[in-house]
Amino acid sequence: MEIVIEELSKHYGSVRALDGVSLRVPGGMFGLLGPNGAGKTTLMRILVTLLAPTSGRVTIGGIDVMRDPAKVRARLGYIPQEFGFYRSLNAYEMLDYIGTMKRIPPRERKRQVEAVLEEVNLTADAKRRVGTYSGGMKQRLGIAQALLGDPDLLVVDEPTAGLDPEERIRFRNLLVRISGRRTVLLSTHIVADVEASCTGLAVLRQGRLAFAGTPEELVERARGRVWLVEVEPGEWDEVASRVQVVSSRTVGGRVQLRVVADENPLGRGVPVEPGLEDGYLAVSGSAQREEWLVHV
């Protein structure tokens, strides 16, 4: 299912949560990256029919989301950033209820509910009240409900936030497996998740599209701009205020920084091979870079 987004804007008063975003998601697993407040959730809520945009157009598999929301819902699985369930039902009942709402025929429903419970590793706890679940278990139940009905499009808004590493990897692999046949749109802050799974990605920054392409292309954005530089602790603040610091570690009393910058920082940086995180910072943090250039 191809998603085509054209000149999409969403304004909350003077806040431009989305500002003229155009994007094509061809299918497969697609990552949506961006800092807090970039507009990822807003974009996803528009895709899943929860929110009406201020202007612009979205089609999913040729269906106009604004005109035919019902058709979109019939093919959709969605995991919101925040959600809950009826606390007094158990996981099985909750999923069975949702299965009915998703119009899954009764016999098929029982099979699917059991299958998704198995997929998210909740079979053992299926008869427990959802109210007694831990945050991660609830998150997994959220994943399970999205998988019900075998949707063509899965929209996943920061799903791995509450998961332990093991479950996180499990879930990531699950998404990859699913995405073979359909479209998975995954928003996250965690670049490693995207790196490990996505075939395409986009970066939003302040409601605008900062990048769209493959992970490799994003990496290329940082080529020649990633440096390792050793600084005195006293110089740290000055450097950090001028360039994007990707990571840092202390080496024998001095601090070794990995930075993204157009020019060799302090004149003593060593160029290194870029990674996806560098690329992400290069596109999402470009404002600071420009500032630094002006100052030097």
Binding site: T49, L50, R73, F83, F85, Y86, I98, M101, K102, R103
Partner: peptide
């Protein structure tokens, strides 16, 4: 208000249901 109180509303509004619920 139950769905809103339990935060189930965002989920259930994306289900292919109508006024019957």
């Amino acid at each position: 208000s139950r769905s809103a109180r339990t935060r189930f509303d965002d989920l259930e509004q994306t289900y292919p249901t109508g006024a019957e619920v």
